[in-house]
Structures are given as structure tokens and as C-alpha cells.
Write a protein that binds this DNA or RNA. Structure first.
Length: 265
DNA sequence: ATGACCGATTGCATCGGA
């Protein structure tokens, strides 16, 4: 089973690129982020006609997540628990029947958090990021006792290590590379989760995002911020991981590329 | 960080993104 994550930076602006990629990569489950549209304007038919069931959790203009699945959904949960007043559409979870039992997948669009500082203190944006990460940790912890294959897939806006950026000095102080961010990310992994790329590959300079500005793509000035975070039962079943780098070269590309895990599930 | 960015919005500039 191929399970992928991709921040598409608007599903409507990216519809051609997405459908083309679905046909060639042929993933079983896809976690999308930054769909940037209300559910009524999501291009449902175009994606369903390729054989996918669709779970969407969108909002106007910003954020928005979705899960595509060739198999039907057993269960869908919209929104990250822990704050009823949070109106940002950044989390969606679904259960799909695999060959050997249920598989739980979440699509995650973790807040950017910049600018980090406002005046003398942390900004509201950065505090929101850290709070959101604490909520994600709580959700992840509450799901562990199920002992299911669980894949937390998404745009984490976290650069795990210096080798995951072209310019560690330049990124120092950025919300994606702060010590507090690293601690919050590590706390989730320390519950017993595994970051798939770290386990299976671990090479330097394997980026998933290149800014549209400054010739970042032709100069390969990227960062690795899109991750598959796996429960023990998922980590034991993953057979390979690919970063679909070539997608960044296409017509009207997203600034992120897909990350695909192949699982025996 | 930013060569000459990109997307959404009742828009003709501003905001958010990483």
C-alpha cells in the first residue's frame, strides 16, 4: 500500500498537477495539505473519477486538508482535539481497512509559526505552533494504546536537523528550526513514533520544499519539512520511502513535493 | 534568506506562506 503526503498549495490551482501525479504515482492513500478552499469548491468529481474516496476539511482561503483513499473510509475525524475555539483546518484523521486490519492515517498541516518574536516575547503565531504541537502529541499519545498502524503524514513545518537544510546558519531562529520546535517534535517521536525518512534513508540534503523565490529550486536551496511519522505497528510495516522530487520541475508546481511510503498493510 | 514568487481575495493592493 502506497501512502503519500503532499502540500499542494491550493487544490484548485494544482488540479492538473495533482491528477497527473495520481495517474503516474498511483498511491492508495494521499494526505493533502493547504487545499485553500471551502469544501463546496473542492474539485470532488475530478478526483473521485480517478477512483478515490474523499474526506475533506477545508476553510476559506487558507489551510485546508484532505485525505484521498482508494478504499472506503471506516471512520473520519475532522479537526485536532484539544481546543474547541481553534478554527484553522489543519488536521483530519481517517481509518481504512488494510489487508490485515485497520490502518489509521492523519493529514497534518502544522502551523508555520513565523515570526517567532513579537516585541520581547514569543509571538502569538509561534505560541500557536507550540500549543498545536502539544495537542498533536496528546492526540498521538491517546491513539497509541490501539496498537494500530498509524501514519501521521504531513507538512510539519519542522526541519529536523541541520543536514535537512541547505543553510543551517540562515535558518537558525526560524520557527521551523528553533530549539523549542525541535523539542516539541522530539517529544512526539519519544512517545514511540518513528520518522520514516530518518529510519530508512537519513541522507543529507533530501529536501521536500523549495521556495518559489530567489531561484531556490534551480539552486537546490531547499528544506525537508514534510514527514511520515509512524506508530510502531506502521514502522514495522514500511518497506520504502520516496521523495518525488521531479514533481517540483513540472508545469505550475507546488513549492512542496510528495513524500511516499510503501507499506505491507 | 529571497534573482524577477505564488495563491486568494468582491481585489486593482494586501496578506500569508517557509
Amino acid at each position: 500500500m502506497k501512502i503519500a503526503t503532499w502540500n499542494v498549495n491550493s487544490i484548485n490551482a494544482r488540479l492538473h498537477a495533482v491528477t497527473k501525479w495520481l495517474k503516474t504515482a498511483n498511491p492508495d492513500i494521499v494526505c493533502l495539505q493547504e487545499t485553500k478552499t471551502i469544501d463546496e469548491a473542492f474539485p470532488r468529481e475530478e478526483i473521485e473519477s480517478l477512483g478515490y474516496n474523499l474526506a475533506i476539511h477545508g476553510q476559506k482561503s487558507y489551510n485546508g486538508v484532505a485525505i484521498l483513499s482508494k478504499r472506503p473510509f471506516e471512520e473520519v475525524i475532522s479537526g485536532l482535539p484539544g481546543d474547541d475555539n481553534d478554527e484553522q483546518a489543519r488536521y483530519l484523521e481517517a481509518v481504512i481497512m488494510g489487508d490485515n486490519g485497520p490502518v489509521r492515517v492523519a493529514t497534518i498541516y502544522l502551523p508555520n509559526g513565523n515570526p517567532v518574536i513579537h516585541g520581547e516575547a514569543f509571538s502569538q503565531k509561534y505560541l500557536y505552533k507550540l500549543t498545536w504541537m502539544a495537542r498533536l502529541k496528546a492526540r498521538a499519545q491517546s491513539l497509541l494504546p490501539f496498537e494500530e498502524p498509524l501514519i501521521l503524514a504531513g507538512d510539519y513545518n519542522v526541519i529536523p536537523e541541520a543536514k535537512d537544510t541547505h543553510d543551517p546558519i540562515g535558518w537558525e531562529g526560524d520557527a521551523a528550526f528553533r530549539p523549542e520546535t525541535h523539542k516539541a517534535f522530539r517529544e512526539i517521536l519519544n512517545l514511540g513514533f518513528t520518522e520514516a525518512f530518518e529510519m530508512l534513508d537519513g541522507r543529507a540534503e533530501q529536501y521536500t520544499f523549495w521556495d518559489y523565490q530567489g531561484g531556490a529550486w534551480p539552486r537546490n536551496k531547499g528544506i525537508r519539512i514534510d514527514h511520515l511519522v509512524l506508530s510502531p505497528q506502521a514502522a514495522d510495516r514500511i518497506r520504502g520511502l520516496t521523495i518525488d522530487r521531479d514533481v517540483r520541475e513540472g508545469v505550475k508546481p507546488s513549492d512542496h513535493v510528495p513524500v511516499i511510503g510503501v507499506f505491507d498493510l
